[in-house]
Write a protein that binds this DNA or RNA. Structure first.
Lengths: 225, 225, 225, 225
DNA sequence: AATGAATGAGAGTTCATTCAT
DNA sequence: GATGAATGAACTCTCATTCAT
């Protein structure tokens, strides 16, 4: 399964990339391995040199995508001055990621049908770091006193997921400003312990200035992997 | 496709019910029409008397489930004293619905892969009413000044969806109280124009009491069924 | 099978007419009984009140068409002054028949695949009368001394058949004049005992005048049924 | 669809040959692909490695048969001293071909029902060469002054077709001599510009000798194979 | 490492026919 | 006489996977 030569690794990667395109455009069940090898430009038998089965290949793909996305989200929040800013930067990174390859979203969603276990793994992976970071923000009084930070984590993921679906998948182009503004307002209100000051409350700005006020720097990290 | 006799209608219904069970337990692609007709106790050909294809049957099923769920949610919020209470009652009804037939959730989720069009239709249907109600609440100053009520609607749906997935699908039993409490707190804070009265609004209510206040049970009955 | 009431006969006829349309447009195998009953506007079960099977219905149809065509051809040649004129009139009638319902041609041709027996019956029926009439014309010295009139009959049928196919089926509109002229010239030369006089030999006229010269009146009749 | 190895080509040929046998014995619609692969001794799926569909296979077969027949007919007429002799040699070759594999005739005829387009293509292919050769013979005054050589081509094809059907398909053994003699007489009279020499041209040669004269055997060999 | 050939189980779908009403 | 429901056998076609080269 694991290639031993460089050539082998290259072929494997060609197959994964092809699979991303194929599973993104059609779907897991309608796409055939024939489609993948054709797209990758390799022979039919070659596929089984690198993947045990169609399902195995799909799983690898989902894991790889999850890995990439988590890395980008993490890196996006790295220099944010507060937890809420980490949150918002994360959403921005998430939206950007989807916009760059909308197929990724589709593929992950298919996992829910194709193999619930990887799907669950995917979100649990996200949720863990999320949950801890939120708990920390609550303890630190940056966030309101939520008792079940995991639930909050899932709420945040769900909310981002649906916005992505609605404004990136069902519609071309980036998330509209007004939408992002409402998202920011929504999150600040819901999460921050302190009531917002006037400007932010009127939802007329983007995200950055108003919140710099919330003194405590985010503990950062811990939100992914 | 449409039956003309009573006997025909009965058979059709038998098939739909069987399809719900079958598509819920296995999934669309792994389930065969043979499974459905066996479950329904009719002949193989009979299926095609009432559905143009496997996909057609699936679509009908999703529409039917959407219809039922919307009806229950609507009815749950019917006698709530304020919009925020309608919201919460709706979530309760949604959770109750899923708990009663978790298959429904699975089926709808499959639609995202099986037939994106019905899936979208399903949520757009929900979103419409939602969006208008939110816009009205904003106008009436019950809700904070969101400029893009549709975005808020999708956020709410997403957040409910993920909670359902996490606490009803991945786990037996009803949504834990603490989770619902956090949901309620989250929504009140995010949506209501006025800061919450009582401890919840203050950063010092961090230990427990604040939540007890927010977990106000939805006023009238009808929200669980 | 045979209806007993008038209403029954009407329904049967509706079915036959529908079958002609359906088998003409699609073909025997691709057309379903469902198509026929739908076209006829009767119930599915009704079909079997009048026909033992799909094949039975098809056979009836072919026989009926053969009957109609033979009648028209016979009648067309009734008043011709000589055998060769009967021949030409017959071809004209044949072409006219096909032009009026080109489906008939298609249906008969299908019989060759669907049920070789009816197909053969159809042509043998035609050939019998033909053969005898040709033999008589040979005896009477109107025609050249062919020793195997049946072979001549099949040659004539084949030649007409292919002209019909080429100029009526593959092309809209009636048989072009030049084609018919060549057909006439061809037949006169091939069949008539006497060499043609100048005019006809230059193939510049239609059919009538030149041949009136061949004195002996056709015995007529005997060419069909 | 196109094989790439030798083994592949061999398998494909096995399938085509099997298809000829199967479609010849049963017919296109009644024969199943199962019959073909069984006859060819390969797996069910193998069929689709070389043919897009049942219809595709049938089409290939018809084209192949047309190709073979045209080659034989052409070669048969290659050394004939005059156009009329080419004609007769062609008919002989045609009859010989059918006698050797009567299935071929049946298969082509089915095409009229199965796929009118290939059927038409089949005859148009034949007709083209035919038409030009006839036009040339007319120009050179070997043939009578037909103005529409294509029509003549179709008449010749039709006439041969029906003789083949009557005397080779409906009856065992080769075309009877008397039939071929009449065909030869018929064609010479119809086509040649000059009246036949000898008794045939005169109305009094009615008994037998005339035909002996017309049934001149086609000069060189190669006309039977 | 790479490949194209081969496979057979199984899928969805159609349809002539029967039957109870 | 007429009908719509019901049926199950049969069909074409797909595809993940194996294997010899």
């Amino acid at each position: 399964m694991e290639p031993v030569t460089d050539r082998g690794w290259a072929t494997r990667q060609r197959l994964l990339t092809a699979a991303e395109r194929v599973f993104g455009e059609q779907d897991y069940f309608r796409a055939s391995i024939g489609d993948i090898v054709r797209e990758a430009g390799v022979g039919q038998g070659t596929f089984y040199l690198y993947f045990k089965s169609k399902l195995d290949c799909f799983r690898e793909l989902v894991r790889w995508l999850g890995h990439e996305l988590r890395a980008e989200v993490k890196q996006a929040g790295a220099r944010a001055p507060s937890r809420i800013e980490v949150e918002l930067a994360g959403f921005r990174a998430f939206f950007a990621f989807i916009e760059r390859h909308r197929q990724a979203y589709r593929i992950v969603k298919q996992a829910e049908t194709v193999d619930p276990a990887v799907y669950r793994e995917y979100y649990e992976r996200f949720a863990e770091g999320y949950r801890d970071a939120i708990a920390a923000a609550v303890d630190r009084r940056e966030y309101a006193p939520y008792r079940h930070p995991e639930a909050v984590a899932y709420m945040l993921m769900g909310l981002g997921d649906f916005l992505g679906m609605r404004y990136l998948l069902w519609q071309e182009g980036p998330v509209p400003d007004a939408v992002f503004a409402d998202l920011a307002l929504f999150l600040r209100r819901a999460l921050l312990a302190e009531p917002l000051d006037g400007a932010a409350a009127r939802a007329d700005g983007h995200s950055t200035p108003a919140v710099a006020a919330s003194a405590v720097p985010a503990t950062a990290g811990g939100d992914t992997e």
